[in-house]
Nucleic acid binder design. Structure first.
Length: 568
RNA sequence: CGGGGUAUAGCGCAGCCUGGUAGCGCAACUGCUUUGGGAGCAGUGGGUCGGGAGUUCGAAUCUCUCUACCCCGACCA
């Protein structure tokens, strides 16, 4: 490809509304352009990258037995009524209707559609197991789309669905998919981590997420410093930090805390440590208000809370007025002594003694509070975020934290959808049986952003070889004046093409510095500079984008040098 | 959804308060010079000032309204 016949539009300035590096660089390098909130066009240059990611995914999915197909992006609302998922997805669903006022959703995911397909298509256990997948545009009406294609509303996803007669077969395919995901991200060339995850609105039993490691990642990943354990903080089990509850050593005492509402304020006012305090959070329950209690230095884990059957879904904190009614005081003074709510305490809290809490009376806290003697709880649960330094839940080492970008999520769904939608097969005994099901998603467009997030420098993108839009760029100096440069460049260009190398020749009439800066921004892995100065010595200058170390390569050796340096 | 902000040329902005010929930088185009790190000079093109309504002799500017986009949003017990 020649730049004059391609479309390259770069910007020197970083766009004002782009917050993270990948978004800034994708706009500057001209890979994407915004159409509206969470809506992006992929330019020819960006699309080449997208297609490379796609084809790696496609190859690995095919290799592990997946069958590619294509389902409609627009889905009848009836299907979603069958599974009752409209509420789970809530406002994220883009509702549309046709001229006859029939209701549709633009698909955010395709469990319903594939299950409908399969229930009509598959009748016998002999057709199982089977895995279908597609690469397609999805739409999720995010509350706040941001970070360019990292969290856009319209995006490209690979979604796969497997169907089985037995759980064992499901687990077998699930493992195959896990392996395929490993292979895909390894081939793309990114550092990542596979972690335990909450399954959220998709449902099912087991699930794991694949996170590309990057400081800007929106997710926190907890992992053991010496074992295998790794989990999204949403899911990561938080163990009790207190082995056994000590007997009370203090009397219960009400103290004045006239204006101390926050844990920080109370702790400094009473001159105590945060670990001696608890905080009580009132949330909407299925049957009346629920109090969730965590230690003062801990954070409530909303996902864990939402998963409790006693807690209303979607999760909602009570507002100031409701708090006043339930606790008789303002937020800031809520305590657990004689609180008219279902009280669920975190495991650590359950073992605390002589602790401090609000008195359910404005301006007062209790100190020396002890369970049983002074207050009762109804239930113990894991309610808090695990934190760095906690013992790992599997007993191996302590927990560390990293930030990650979720690019893949695999689930063992079981028969949630097949039961709801009556997707059954006849088994060996001729009996009707709901199929076991797995689903496996991967964000194709997000993968591109994640790659940049992990691989860039102050000059621009540094593409991993496997997904670079071009492998090699030819940067001729004085191309439009020097006949020798022009001829030599042209020869090299033709022979690289002959070898199947993806090469772009910058034949624009621009100054050398401009050319070089442009291609540093674009991040092409291999650069060859052709200039009279080097040609006098019968060499080309070669350098890699990742280290920018200049290297002279004899002109007649260049072709073999390049083909040897490129992963075919 | 709640709160805040912005909307003027492809991009970034000034002009608005105090109504009267729509400007600057970058980008683009032409010419000359330059040509190993985002060139210089000279010139050119491009905007119904987000939409609608109102006030006024006159509105980018004042008023109302709609829309779009951006930012923030339990973490307090």
């Amino acid at each position: 490809m020649r730049t004059t016949q391609f479309h390259i539009v770069t910007r020197k300035e970083t766009p004002q509304d782009a917050e993270i590096v990948s978004h800034q660089l994708m706009i500057r390098a001209g890979l994407i352009r915004k159409l509206g909130a969470g809506l992006y066009s992929w330019t020819p240059l960006g699309f080449r990258v997208l297609q490379k990611v796609e084809s790696i995914i496609r190859e690995e999915m095919n290799k592990s037995g997946g069958l590619e197909m294509l389902m409609p992006a627009v889905q009848p609302k009836d299907l979603w009524e069958e599974t009752g998922r409209i509420n789970d997805f809530g406002g994220q669903l883009l509702a549309i209707h046709d001229r006859a006022e029939r209701d549709y959703f633009f698909g955010p995911t395709h469990e319903e559609v594939i299950t409908d397909f399969v229930r009509n298509e598959i009748n016998s256990y002999k057709q199982l197991p089977i895995t279908f997948y597609q690469i397609q545009t999805k739409f999720r009406d995010e509350i706040r789309p941001r970070f360019g294609v990292m969290r856009s509303r319209e995006f490209i996803m690979k979604d796969a669905y497997s169907f089985h007669l037995s759980k064992e077969s499901l687990v077998e395919t699930y493992e195959k998919m896990r392996q395929a995901y490993d292979n895909i991200i390894n081939r793309i060339g990114l550092k990542f981590r596979c972690v335990l995850a909450d399954s959220g609105a998709i449902g099912g039993s087991g699930s794991q997420e694949f996170h590309v490691i990057a400081d800007s990642g929106e997710d926190a990943i907890m992992y053991s410093d010496s074992g295998e354990y790794a989990a999204n903080i949403e899911k990561c089990a938080a163990v009790s930090l207190i082995g056994e509850r000590q007997a009370p050593s203090m009397d219960l005492q009400k103290v004045e805390t006239p204006s101390q509402k926050t844990i920080e304020e109370v702790v400094s006012h009473l001159d105590v440590e945060k670990v001696q305090t608890i905080k009580t959070l009132l949330v909407a329950g299925v049957d009346g208000p629920v109090a969730l209690v965590v230690r003062g230095d801990h954070q409530l884990n909303e996902v864990k809370a939402n998963n409790l059957i006693e807690v209303a879904s979607p999760f909602r904190m009570l507002d100031d007025e409701e708090i006043k009614t339930v606790a008789g005081c303002d937020a800031g003074f809520i305590g657990i002594k004689s609180l008219a709510a279902h009280i669920i305490v975190d495991q650590t809290v359950a073992n605390m003694s002589d602790f401090i809490c609000g008195a359910c009376e404005n301006g007062f806290h209790y100190i020396g509070v002890n369970w049983e003697r002074d207050a009762q709880f109804h239930q113990i649960a894991d309610l808090r975020d695990a934190q760095v330094g906690d013992p790992s839940p599997d007993g191996q080492g302590t927990l560390q934290m990293a930030r990650g970008i979720e690019v893949g999520h695999i689930f063992q769904l079981g028969n949630k959808y097949s039961k709801a939608m009556n997707a059954v097969v006849l088994n060996e005994k001729g009996q009707s049986q709901a199929m076991e099901m797995g689903c496996y998603g991967m964000g194709v467009s997000r993968m591109v952003a994640a790659a940049i997030e992990q691989s860039h420098d102050e000059k621009g993108i540094i593409w991993p070889e496997a997904i670079a839009p071009f492998q090699v760029v030819l940067l001729p100096m004085n191309y439009h004046k020097s006949e020798r440069v022009k001829a030599v460049t042209h020869d090299l260009y033709q022979s690289l093409i002959g070898q199947g190398v993806e090469v772009i020749l910058d034949d624009r009439k621009v100054r050398p510095g401009f050319m070089m800066s442009d291609f540093e921004l674009l991040g092409i892995p291999h650069q060859i500079i052709i200039g009279d100065r080097a040609l006098d010595r019968n060499v080309f200058e070669y350098r890699q984008r990742k280290d920018m170390q200049n290297q002279d390569i004899a002109c007649d050796k260049m072709l073999t040098f390049i083909t040897e340096h490129i992963c075919a």
